[in-house]
Design a protein around this nucleic acid. Sequence first.
DNA 1: TACAAACTGGTACAAGCGTACCAATCTGGG
DNA 2: CCCAGATTGGTACGCTTGTACCAGTTTGTA
Lengths: 215, 215
Amino acid sequence: MRQPAQERGRRRRDALLDAGAELLAEGGFAKVSHRAVAERAGVPLAATTYYFRSRDELIAAAFERMVDRDIAATGARFTERIRRLAPDLPPGPATAGTARVPARAAAEAFAAALLPHDEAERRRQLALWELYLQAGRDPALRPLARAWTDRCRALTRELLRISGYQATEAFVHMLGAAADGLAIEAIVEDRPNAVRSMVEIVSHALDRIRTTEGA
Amino acid sequence: MRQPAQERGRRRRDALLDAGAELLAEGGFAKVSHRAVAERAGVPLAATTYYFRSRDELIAAAFERMVDRDIAATGARFTERIRRLAPDLPPGPATAGTARVPARAAAEAFAAALLPHDEAERRRQLALWELYLQAGRDPALRPLARAWTDRCRALTRELLRISGYQATEAFVHMLGAAADGLAIEAIVEDRPNAVRSMVEIVSHALDRIRTTEGA
DNA sequence: TACAAACTGGTACAAGCGTACCAATCTGGG
DNA sequence: CCCAGATTGGTACGCTTGTACCAGTTTGTA
């Protein structure tokens, strides 16, 4: 049931997952019904209950897929931008105390990578947070939520390392939390200063890392 | 319709709002139906559509009420705790550069004030965030969301002032965002270290305020 | 005390929901 | 080639939902 034996079945399950993720992004939680998903995926209604035990299971699986994509996209956007700034940056571990990318540039890369840059992406991120919050009520979703948090934190750590900053675990945690807070604010309200705020705040934080925690 | 002319009407509207807020906290968005609210409030079904034009309007009004209560409760918890530490603290503006409450103590007051300390409160805060996110989809909710953000920021600024810290606007923004991020994490997942993390992070941040932004 | 307005409460409706069911069809391994 | 098991697709059931409706009752005021 989880992994269909036949090729066409696998494609259908996949299409359902994609349709679920799309609907989740477009209209949030409430818009994801068996009927809507089936129609979007171009399969009959009954296929949804055939490939997923229940609506909740479908949503959980779609959430997982969205997380995968989001993490990958964020990482890619960041490294692409950073490497444009410092093309010779080696992929190996950063040397302690050597901030190779200026704080402001790194902060700009952070903002560009984390904040949504179009309406579709904004809605995707909105959906991710909705699912995340839902985990506060539904224990079945909690492991996924925790996994998302962990991967975000690991990504933050990695992005810092890539840009040449060596940070304590507490700093990573702080930066991640602040970035989350700012990102949510940017996603929900649309205030004009979201990018500027994040750049300012992150670069301030990175500035301090050198004087207080660098070699 | 918004403000009933008769006494009993006002009481009913109030009871509906309370019931709505309760249900919102207990089961989130999905659990708030006309029927559930009416039953909880002890009024007939039709009263819900009599006092509120629609379900959305009822929910928005309940959201507003929850925000009021949350802001008030958080502020009260913080000042109560701080004044226990520094009973002579005057309510006037803090003198520049003088950090009167040790960073660690202030951080502990922050954590105690912001993080939920029982299950009911956890669910209330969860509901607040759910509503906030919903504002990302529903423009009608956006002014309320913005108002919440603004009041939270003002509260952060005020709490810093009370404890004797003078911070730039950027610092207030950063601290607020980080606190939001940490609070959401604590509310959704229940990791054991939520309080410790917040104390550590906030006190680090406050430590830095003295050396870099004080007098 | 009369009367318009505010309010009550019971009921009805159409729509959408998750899920179950099942006869018909397809498909891959023996 | 054949058949057990995988898959299909159409339909149906029981339930909940938001909202509309309206004949009655209560209320504040003139």
